[in-house]
Simulated assay, not measured.
Amino acid sequence: MGLKPKDEQEKQKVVPLFQSGDYFFHRGIAAYRKNHLQRAIKLLERAVKLTNTEPVFHVQLAAVLSEIGEYERSNEILENVLAENKDVAECYFFMANNYAYLGLFERAERMTLRYLELSPDERFTQDAKDLLELLRFEREEEDDWEEIEEDEDELLAQFERAHYLIRQGNMSQAVPVLQKIMDEHPTYWTAHNQLAEALFQMGDESAFDLCYTVLEKDPGNLFAICNLALFYHKNGEAKKAEPFIRSLQRVYPIDGDHYTKVAETLCTIGEYQAAYERIKDVSRWELEERPKLLYCFAVATFYVSGKEKAEPLLKRAEELGSKQAIDVLSGVAKDRPWNEIVHYNLWVE
Score class of each variant (00 low, 15 high):
334 K>G: 06
165 L>S: 07
237 E>Y: 02
93 F>E: 06
127 D>H: 04
93 F>W: 07
200 F>P: 01
312 P>S: 06
349 E>D: 13
134 L>T: 08
25 F>H: 08
129 K>S: 04
255 D>E: 15
193 N>V: 08
217 K>S: 05
271 E>F: 01
40 A>C: 07
225 I>L: 12
10 E>M: 15
93 F>Q: 06
241 A>P: 01
14 V>H: 01
174 A>S: 15
331 G>A: 11
220 G>F: 00
74 S>P: 05
145 W>S: 09
182 M>E: 10
202 M>A: 08
14 V>Y: 06
143 D>P: 03
214 V>G: 02
24 F>L: 10
153 D>E: 12
273 Q>H: 03
22 D>S: 15
311 E>P: 00
247 S>V: 00
196 A>N: 02
153 D>C: 07
223 F>N: 12
135 L>P: 09
286 E>R: 13
136 R>G: 10
262 V>Y: 00
148 I>P: 10
114 R>K: 15
49 K>Q: 14
13 K>E: 14
216 E>A: 13
82 L>E: 02
15 V>P: 06
54 E>V: 15
262 V>F: 06
285 W>M: 12
39 R>G: 06
163 H>G: 06
92 Y>Q: 05
129 K>N: 07
61 L>M: 00
177 V>W: 04
98 N>A: 04
235 N>T: 06
185 H>G: 11
54 E>G: 03
292 K>R: 12
171 M>W: 10
282 V>W: 01
285 W>Y: 11
284 R>C: 08
139 R>C: 03
318 E>W: 02
318 E>K: 15
119 S>P: 00
246 R>K: 13
320 L>R: 00
144 D>S: 13
54 E>I: 14
50 L>D: 05
134 L>K: 09
162 A>N: 03
20 S>C: 09
305 S>A: 13
242 E>R: 09
117 E>W: 02
230 L>V: 02
110 R>E: 15
330 S>N: 15
340 E>T: 07
167 R>C: 05
100 A>I: 08
139 R>L: 14
302 F>P: 08
127 D>E: 14
204 D>C: 09
148 I>M: 10
274 A>P: 00
239 K>L: 13
151 D>K: 09
82 L>G: 01
280 K>D: 04
74 S>R: 02
325 A>Q: 02
244 F>K: 02
346 L>P: 00
106 E>A: 13
75 N>A: 10
171 M>K: 11
125 T>D: 05
285 W>E: 14
251 V>C: 06
275 A>K: 02
349 E>Q: 09
289 E>A: 12
